[in-house]
């Protein structure tokens, strides 16, 4: 790992500067549709959840999911296009950059995208009065940890993936279940005990807990456990896409 990680990141930043309007606008539409349909539509039927309005309940959760999707799409489709179609990785490997530099540069960039997408939703839910605490500021650094983790998992899949269509499986069979059973749309304590235990295996659940608590100012030491789980998993897993990508690129 060298300064070249930063140089890879800089290349992605250059591209983002040109394409951010097309790139970002479309992706923001989906969380807003959820907020409208669920928050205002379903929210009329639902009373309070955990002492807050349903719109507030899901609005804060959507910060985490939006950030997860951003990192996921960047580290799947985004990285795969560079790897497979554009051969950008190969071009970088002709320079002193190594596979580890490229993978970590991609992960950092995906984490940045998480931060950007999470931030926009955070601004929106703050603007409509759903955020109640200055602790919400801690959501910014947390988005980077959260994004790095989901990017690591996604890039591991990408380094194995042979065809762009396979990402449909990843999105449908992995990301979507995480999204639906993360405690964004309903509190998990309404589920049977075994299902609550299962939720602990859902990384997005940990993020939703952290983001929602920070937004509401409901701080408790236990939140650190969720954060530490994500950091530990990121450190444990980050070598995996590096090794797998090395195997794929260097024969």
């Amino acid at each position: 790992m060298t300064i070249n990680v930063w140089r890879v990141f800089r290349r992605h930043l250059n591209v983002l500067k040109k394409t951010w309007l097309n790139n970002l606008m479309f992706n923001f539409i989906e969380p807003f549709l959820y907020l409208l349909a669920m928050g205002f539509g379903l929210g009329n039927l639902v009373q309070e959840v955990d002492g807050i309005s349903y719109l507030q309940f899901i609005g804060l959760g959507m910060i985490a999911s939006s950030a997860m999707w951003a990192a996921t799409f960047e580290a799947t489709y985004g990285s795969f296009v560079r790897l497979h179609y554009q051969k950008t990785y190969h071009a970088m490997l002709a320079t002193p950059a190594t596979v580890a530099d490229i993978v970590l540069g991609d992960l950092l960039f995906a984490a940045l995208k998480s931060l950007i997408f999470g931030t926009v939703i955070l601004f929106v839910v703050t603007a409509i009065g759903l955020v109640h605490s200055v602790w919400a500021l801690l959501i910014f650094p947390f988005m980077l940890i959260h994004g790095f983790f989901f990017a690591t998992v996604a890039l591991t899949f990408t380094s194995w993936c042979k065809h762009i269509d396979y990402f449909n499986y990843y999105i449908t069979l992995f990301s979507t279940p995480l999204f639906l059973f993360s405690g964004i749309f309903f509190p998990l304590n309404t589920l049977p005990a075994w299902a609550q235990w299962l939720a602990w295996l859902n990384p997005l659940f940990h993020s939703v807990e952290v983001v929602r608590s920070l937004g509401l100012g409901r701080l408790e030491p236990f939140l650190l456990v969720h954060v530490i789980i994500l950091i530990a998993l990121s450190i444990l897993l980050a070598w995996l896409p590096i090794r797998m990508m090395e195997k794929r690129l260097i024969q």
Binding site: N14, V15, Q86, K87, T88, A91, A94
Partner: peptide
């Protein structure tokens, strides 16, 4: 100069 042009089409 690789066999396949791998210029960065985003730039």
């Amino acid at each position: 100069v690789p066999q396949e042009d791998n210029l960065d089409p985003d730039l």
